[in-house]
Amino acid sequence: MQIMPAVHSLAGRLAEHTARHDLRSRWFGVGRSVIAAAQLSVLLLTPLKALLVPVVGMGEFPRCDSVRAASALCLGGDAVGAEPRRWLLIMVLLVAASGYRPRWTVIPHAWAAYSVAVSISVPDGGESVGMIMCFLMIPIGLADGRTWHWQRPESALAPSWRTVSLAAFLAIRVQIAYLYLDSALSKFGVADWANGTAEYYFLRDGMFGVSRPWDGVLLWMSKSPLVVVSLTWGALLIEIAIGVCLLSSGRRRKVGMVLDIVLHGSIILTMGLWSFALAMIGSAIVCATPDRRPAEPVAVDSGSDTGSAAAGAWAHDAGRAADPCPECGAHAPPAAAVSSV
């Protein structure tokens, strides 16, 4: 049957890609730290009473019913004050942002992100994105046995961890790409976005409008129909481009990351929304992590797998990586050096 060769070819390419997959790099570390910094900015720069302000129809915050009781802001009930809980979250996020022991801190980081997302009364969207990213990064973090996520790994990643980490990485890319594509396409159903005038009104919004020192220049520029249409439709096109790029190859994902920084950097300069912008930029950096890295270490971080299987995959990587690594500009070791393990 003609379909069987195609199936075998696809399986072979998937196995090869999995064997070369390794997210233990500074790319992943920087993205994770930026996300933690976004969450820290919420807790450090906003008074807790402003984060937990009562909402009409919803009652007092934090709400500790159902699964929300797992939040750190519900810890200890009435016997523990709100400030000690806040500082507990700050300490967890500081350790996560520092990059220390990803395998140990990835779950506490997800717990802190969950606590912020479900407990504060006025989330801006960045908290939800950060929470989802932290949960999806758990398998990747558990596979990362480095002391600091800024270091180069000293051992090969076991095959099972490669597979689990790759699945989580693909889920992250699909999630973030869907967010941008859905955001852009849904705006075409709103009259102000469709006719190109939305940015005119956003720049003049009383709460989220442009702030100093850019207000004079941008408000003057926005009086031009051409400028307003360019800003409005340009934002939609950039969002679509980001979503498409994050689903593509490594080089295109880097293009998507640059577009993401440009988009959210512009939002920071004009409208603020620091925590949301940082959460999105950090997510884009994680998505832009290169597919492969040079196979320099020879020891095996085996976990529950046998060393021979992981070493075989590592040798396979090295044997196919004689050319300079496109992401790092370095040469991988020859296969003979690895096969002697």
Rank of each mutant, 00 (worst) to 15 (best):
G29W: 00
A36E: 01
G31C: 06
A37K: 08
H17R: 03
T18L: 00
V42T: 01
R32P: 12
A19W: 11
A50F: 13
L40P: 05
L40D: 06
S41F: 03
G31Q: 07
S33D: 10
T46S: 06
W27E: 08
S33M: 11
S25G: 08
L23D: 02
R24Q: 05
G31S: 06
D22A: 08
V42Q: 00
I35T: 11
R13T: 14
E16S: 12
L23Y: 03
L45V: 14
S33G: 15
S25I: 03
L48G: 10
R20T: 00
G29K: 00
A36S: 01
S25K: 04
A36T: 03
L43W: 13
S25E: 01
R32C: 13
V30H: 12
Q39Y: 07
K49C: 12
I35Q: 13
W27H: 11
E16H: 07
S41W: 05
G29S: 01
T46Y: 05
R24N: 04
A38Q: 13
P47E: 12
R26G: 08
R20D: 01
V30G: 10
S33C: 14
K49M: 15
H21C: 05
T18W: 00
Q39I: 06
V34F: 10
E16R: 04
L48M: 11
S33F: 12
S33H: 09
T46Q: 04
L14K: 03
P47D: 15
L23P: 04
A50L: 14
E16L: 09
R26A: 09
R24L: 05
V34T: 12
L44T: 13
A15N: 04
S41N: 08
R26S: 11
H21R: 08
R32S: 12
V30M: 11
H17M: 02
G29N: 02
R32V: 08
L45N: 15
I35L: 12
V34C: 12
K49V: 15
I35D: 06
Q39A: 09
K49P: 11
H21A: 09
L45Y: 15
E16A: 08
S41R: 01
Q39S: 08
L43D: 07
S33Q: 10
L43S: 13
V42D: 04
R13F: 11
R13E: 10
S25P: 00
F28A: 06
G29A: 03
H17V: 00
S41M: 01
R26H: 10
L45K: 14
H17P: 00
Q39E: 10
A15V: 00
R26V: 12
V30A: 10
R24W: 07
F28G: 04
H17C: 04
A36V: 01
R24D: 07
T46E: 05
A19V: 14
D22E: 05
P47W: 14
S25C: 02
A19S: 15
R26D: 09
P47C: 15
Q39R: 09
H17Q: 03
A36H: 01
I35M: 08
A19G: 13
T46C: 05
A37M: 07
L48A: 13
L23M: 06
V42P: 02
